[in-house]
């Protein structure tokens, strides 16, 4: 069967991580120049991440063959072990589950976005990797989960690890047809 699309050439499509880190860095610094205040930059990064997330989920589903998650713990596992591995080459650990099972933390030992980055003092409230929060939020919204994602620890700010906290808000039922499981 003739295959359309060039999935077979995946290896040749790999980009160097330096190029990626530089591109992301240039993006953030440009946003800082354009917006002048950290809060606005954080919001823009989140929005951009959201737009990436709503498309990235389709690529993820297409490549990983993962089915629908029926449980937030399953979702956490898939995010940490499959998605992060596939797109950033790292596997964060999952900790700090809330008693209701609706909140958990992803601990990243190293964050490929921030190789060689040092936050200057005048940008102390900048959430440099906020794009990731938007990506996670956008992607999960496309599979009918409303979540809140934020950084609670950041190596750029002097913490030992980078910690992302994810909270399940609700299932998005509006577009879910009756009888959907």
């Amino acid at each position: 069967m003739a295959r359309q699309g060039s999935r077979g050439g995946a290896e040749s499509k790999k980009m160097s991580s330096e190029l990626f880190t530089l591109t992301y860095g240039a993006l953030v610094t440009q946003l800082c120049k354009d917006y002048e205040n950290d809060e606005d930059v954080n919001k823009q990064l989140d929005k951009m991440g959201y737009n990436i997330g709503v498309r990235l989920i389709e690529d993820f589903l297409a490549r990983s063959n993962v089915g629908r998650c029926h449980d937030f713990r399953e979702t956490a596992d898939v995010i940490a072990k499959v998605a992060f591995k596939m797109y950033l080459g790292i596997t964060p650990s999952i900790t700090n589950w809330s008693p209701a099972g609706d909140e958990f933390s992803l601990i990243l030992e190293n964050n490929p976005l921030v190789d060689f980055v040092e936050l200057p003092d005048n940008h102390s409230s900048l959430i440099y990797s906020n794009l990731l929060c938007g990506v996670l939020r956008g992607a999960l919204e496309m599979v009918q989960m409303a979540v809140d994602v934020k950084f609670v620890q950041d190596t750029l700010k002097g913490d030992g690890v980078t910690e992302i906290r994810m909270k399940f808000i609700r299932r998005i039922e509006d577009n879910l047809p009756a009888g959907e499981e």
């Binding site: 295959r3 699309g5 999935r7 498309r55 690529d59 589903l61 297409a62």
Partner: peptide, 12 residues
Amino acid sequence: IYSYIYVEYVVK
């Protein structure tokens, strides 16, 4: 059709 055509040529 989903992964090689829709995702590649539309989503991306």
